[in-house]
Amino acid sequence: MSVDKSPLLQGTLDLLILKSLALGEMHGFGVSQRIGQMSSDILQVGQGSLYPALRRLEQQGWIAARWAPSDNNRRARFYRLTRSGERQLQVEVSHWERLAAAVSGIVAAKSL
């Protein structure tokens, strides 16, 4: 399933980005790669939604960005979680868990 084609649940992309950045600072491409790896390539985040989301999160103060050289010595923009972002991640995770539980409860129900 590609994120670009079927829209993610509202706000889910933010959660994915924050979660992947929780592992450490990385550039935008790295974020999309990591989301792919962690979801066994089920979730793919294309540049079309990734970069606007990164900018929005930065503007909201959850993440911070800086320019730094990457592995192949090309300049890249690296993102990391801020302290506020770490808290926000916890909030979003618990939201997600409640939502997921609710949805799977409905889906698992025998008589519909």
């Binding site: 103060g61 506020s84 926000q88 909030v91």
Partner: peptide, 16 residues
């Protein structure tokens, strides 16, 4: 939504 710390709040201004 989590509370925005003052430090991160200040960071928004130069961005804007």
């Amino acid at each position: 939504m989590a509370k925005l710390l003052l430090r991160d709040r200040l960071r928004r201004i130069p961005l804007a």
